[in-house]
Amino acid sequence: MKKSNRKSIQNVLYENPGPRMRARIRAATILSLFLLLLLLFFIVRQFLITGQLDARYWSFFLRPTTWRFLGMGLLGTVEAAALGGIVALVSGFFLMLARISRFGTLRFLSMIVTEFTRGIPTLLFIYFFFLVIPQFGIKMPPLWKIALPVAISASGIVAEVLRSGVNAVPKGQREAALSLGMLEHVVFIKIIFPQAIRFVIPALIAELVIVVKDTSFAYVVSFPDLMQNAKVLISNYDALLSVYLVVAVIYIVINYLLNRLSLFAASKMKIEA
């Protein structure tokens, strides 16, 4: 199914290749494979020259304690991302509700908040929670100090994504529900929102990927996430490159799984048009 999907997209973008174009595609494939191998060769060679492949940079990965430590970091990342993601979805939902409200003041306020959260870098929110909030005498566990600012930073975009979904629901759906005697809020809950969310699942998951990546700022508030624990490993073993490589792979795997999840969810709830 995946294959046919990809093909259909190709069919949309380009007409079917003729014999000359097929030959050109084949040549390009061979050339790019060759270039990739060349690049890989230079990378490995550079590693060898600089001694990055020495046993001392990699041997500690054979110890279970290393993996347990990274695993704890991974758990921290998952915790922070899950909490941040949930808070972002919930607050984004309410921001969206305010943005489509009948009351102009609410719409205006929501617009301000949305633009504010979208326009400010995540790191600035994190510094705010790390440096400013404690000055008001508010104590917060490190998990919240990373999860909340990340969530706030994402909430505006979540709100806009949800709103675009609501706008994408054909107005006939609403009219049909109203004509059957449903009240406005029932129409929204039962008809509009369930369809809206289906339209925007891929965009929402993309935003969750950003949440996962933003939690890597956790070292600022000394919350032990994957990145923070990686830093500890690096200073312990003086092994910068190997640790970062492994951590990068772990992040890729998490986000790849999230993307698979989004595809799965989208296919489960798909509305065929």
């Binding site: 006939g172 759906q173 009219e175 049909a176 529900a177 008809i191 369809q195 509305i271």
Partner: peptide, 9 residues
């Protein structure tokens, strides 16, 4: 309605 407007989901 002209466009049926059945609930798509």
């Amino acid at each position: 309605f002209q466009s049926f407007n059945l609930f798509a989901h």
